[in-house]
Amino acid sequence: MSAKQYGMLIDTTRCVGCQTCVVSCKINYQVPEEAYWSSVETIGSEVMYQPTGKYPHPVLAFRPRLCNHCTDPVCVKNCPTGAMHKDENGIVSVSQEVCIGCQYCVWVCPYNAPKLDTVQNVMSKCTFCQGRTTKGEKPYCVESCPAEARIFGLISDPHSEISRLISAKHAQPLLPHFGTVPSVYYV
């Protein structure tokens, strides 16, 4: 485990499914063609924006998804080239100049996080906005969320705001049973 680990806390009770996070990431990183580095799902529903349950009491709830920058990332372990790697901040990134585009990282990732860059034919993915966060700026998805549903910070530091909130709100990671030790927590 890297000493430092950035993570995110997402409060789904605040999410209205607008996908501003998804779109800001897409546009601001110029993610090409059909690829999006993040997504939003309608909880319990196959069709986006279709609620579950029956009228007049249907339930509409959303869950944003992104790379979990796992502490034990299976994509890194299973990448044949070593292009997928974890850095000193705990951020999982792909070296596009090394990647062969086998897409096996997509297969092994329970979160479907790496995305094929269909222009360059190599993988691309959420970087936790490394370039911004090192300058003290928030990731695009955090900054753009109109509901302020996301908090970014050092989860490896037990005294950080995010660590405090994760424990106060009893936030849980998604699909923890895969053992990848994800760094994105949900309320």
């Binding site: 996908q19 501003t20 779109v23 546009i27 900054e143 753009s144």
Partner: peptide, 27 residues
């Protein structure tokens, strides 16, 4: 314009906003 982010609103740190529409409009 390669990216659009919320601009500051002096006196109201809690208030900056840029929605998905504003961002994609620039595109």
């Amino acid at each position: 314009i390669v990216a659009v982010t919320p601009g500051l609103l002096p006196g109201r740190d809690d208030y900056p906003n840029a929605c998905l529409r504003a961002m994609s409009y620039a595109q």
